[in-house]
Design a protein around this nucleic acid. Structure first.
Length: 197
DNA sequence: GTCCGGATTACCT
DNA sequence: GGTAATCCGGACT
């Protein structure tokens, strides 16, 4: 099963199809359960809307690469680049269910009291996987990738049922009401926050 | 459940 | 030099 054809469609089609895929690094593995779509062409919340800069370059590049940036003085965010010809867009990975490596996740997330707190938010997930600027631009679909690099692997379960809701942290007038947040309807216990519509 | 302080980056003037 | 940023965790009710 290949992810690239899915990520070379429009991001609104690509984002839900990323649910169920595994995020992997060395002995760490987690199932993606919550994502958000951001698109340059008509989405004021997208970093690439009406402006290009060093920071958002990756979103204009080939689908399947990582777009990683830092925000709020303390959190890294992991996105997967996904768009058709002539657009720039990315999928923010917001939450995942731990499958393997919980001990290291816990070490990196000492304040997490339950398993549900390990990866239930984009900042938490980045901390648990030790994601930072060095992961920006990495090809997440490269099957030959070196040890230590972040990558995506095929799901081990059938494609999930999907629920959509509005995105988190979007200011009024910036597309706060777009239903561009997608989650695995059967694994809502792992998401960062309840879905709202 | 709600509120609020934290603290870094890169872009802007 | 100012500020906004795809948020988290601790403190409280």
């Amino acid at each position: 099963m290949s992810l690239l054809p899915l990520l070379t469609q429009d991001v609104l089609a690509a984002a839900p199809s990323l649910l169920g895929w595994h995020l992997v690094r060395d002995g760490l593995r987690a199932r993606i359960v919550e994502v958000e779509a951001y698109r340059a062409s008509d989405d004021p919340a997208c970093h690439a809307f009406l402006r290009t800069a060093m920071k958002n370059m990756a979103m204009f590049g080939p689908p399947g690469k990582a777009y990683v940036y830092f925000t709020y003085g303390c959190h890294w965010m992991l996105n997967v680049v996904a768009h058709g010809q002539g657009d720039a867009a990315a999928i923010l990975i917001r939450a995942a269910e731990p499958i393997q490596g919980s001990e290291l996740f816990r070490e990196r997330r000492p304040k997490a009291r339950r398993d549900r707190d390990l990866l239930s938010g984009p900042g938490k997930l980045a901390a648990a996987f030790a994601i930072d600027a060095s992961d920006n631009g990495v090809d997440l679909l490269d099957l030959q990738s070196k040890p230590g690099l972040l990558r995506l692997e095929s799901p081990d379960i059938p494609a999930p049922r999907i629920v959509a809701g509005t995105r988190i942290g979007i200011a009024l007038g910036k597309g706060h009401d777009y239903p561009w947040r997608f989650a695995d309807a059967d694994r809502l216990v792992w998401v960062s926050r309840p879905l709202t519509f």
